[in-house]
Amino acid sequence: MTGPHTTLVLGATGTTGSRVVSQLVARGHRVKAAGRRATPLDGAQAVAFDWYDSATFEQALSGTDRLYLLPPPGSTAPAATMLPFLHQAQAAGVRRVVLLSSSAIPAGGPATGEVHRALPGLFDEWAVLRPSWFMQNFTGDHMHARSIRDEGTILTATGQGRVAFVDADDIAAVAVHALTDAQAPNTDLIITGPEALSYTDVATILTEVTGRPVTHRQLTYEQMRDRLAQVIPAEFAALLAGMDHAIAGGAEDRTTDTVRRLTGRPPRRFRAHAEESTR
């Protein structure tokens, strides 16, 4: 890819999207920041985008050749909505797409897995980011963060399974590399933090950093599913609880060198993230 480029960032006010926007702008790239409301962001052009309103697609895609792609929030079958949009993006001149998926979902798997499988047939230049669980889940507005604040407890069905939690800033840095590097990435990137921790380990670190007791309460798959179903659709709750069950079996007990290899710096450790978040 040569010449000036414009990147359309979906979910531009979200956890990773906002960071992708700010990092692209800081490097002097042209950015269209898309969300359900066209929210002004420093250095980026705000544009309205709604997955369930195809009338917003044309303006969002106009003049763009790169795309940071997130699925519709909470959808267990996003391909039905995403694939028609991606065909329109291809026709509109988008040449490189970077999809945010999950370490738990392979190509052809559920949810974003179907979109992952379709990307190479639609675009010459593509990457799929498959990060582990976010560190921000414990310090933002996620269910874990709320239960920590309200009850001093993390509730999961992960048992003593371990996860290499990753900082959203590191995910965004990998995304920016995939969007801007001169060589087409055309790859599936597992993104993790530098150490695999159980949720009990996380609770211990949060206790030490904050000075407030935090514990990990272990639930069964069914208990976790039912707890999640109180606030999200039942099908999505079952999917997430199933991911917890997979963690208990060791599915996420791994680390990768993706952040260091592509950004030139080590990924942030969970303790450093917790310390920064409590300052």
Rank of each mutant, 00 (worst) to 15 (best):
M1L: 14
P4V: 13
P4R: 15
T6A: 13
L8W: 06
V9S: 05
G11V: 08
T15H: 07
T15C: 02
S18I: 03
R19N: 02
V21K: 00
Q23V: 01
A26C: 11
R27K: 09
H29T: 00
R30F: 06
V31W: 01
V31Y: 02
K32D: 02
A33V: 06
P40N: 13
P40V: 12
G43V: 07
G43D: 07
G43P: 04
A46G: 05
V47N: 05
V47I: 06
F49N: 09
D53V: 05
S54C: 08
S54V: 15
A55E: 15
T56W: 01
F57E: 15
F57K: 12
E58Q: 08
A60L: 13
L61G: 09
G63D: 02
L67R: 05
P71W: 14
P73A: 15
L86N: 12
A89V: 13
A91L: 12
A92Q: 13
V94A: 07
V94P: 09
R95I: 07
L100M: 06
S102M: 06
I105P: 07
G108E: 09
G109Q: 04
P110L: 14
P110A: 15
E114C: 12
E114K: 15
H116I: 15
D124K: 11
E125R: 12
E125Y: 04
A127H: 10
A127L: 06
P131N: 14
S132I: 10
Q136H: 06
N137H: 09
T139F: 01
G140L: 10
G140Y: 10
H142F: 13
R146F: 03
S147K: 03
S147M: 05
R149K: 03
D150A: 02
E151S: 05
L155H: 12
L155N: 11
A157Y: 01
R162E: 11
R162Q: 11
A164T: 09
A164P: 02
V166C: 04
V166N: 10
V174W: 06
V176H: 01
L179I: 12
A182I: 09
A184H: 05
N186L: 01
N186G: 04
N186I: 03
L189G: 07
G193Y: 03
A196N: 10
A196F: 11
T200H: 05
T200V: 03
V202E: 01
V202D: 00
L206F: 02
V209L: 03
V209E: 02
G211A: 01
T215I: 05
R217Q: 11
Y221L: 11
M224C: 12
L228R: 01
A229Q: 14
E235V: 10
A237V: 08
G242L: 07
M243H: 14
A246N: 15
A248E: 07
A248W: 01
R254F: 14
T256L: 08
T258K: 03
T258C: 00
V259P: 04
R260G: 10
R261N: 14
R265G: 13
R265A: 15
P267K: 11
P267A: 15
A272S: 07
A274H: 10
S277K: 13
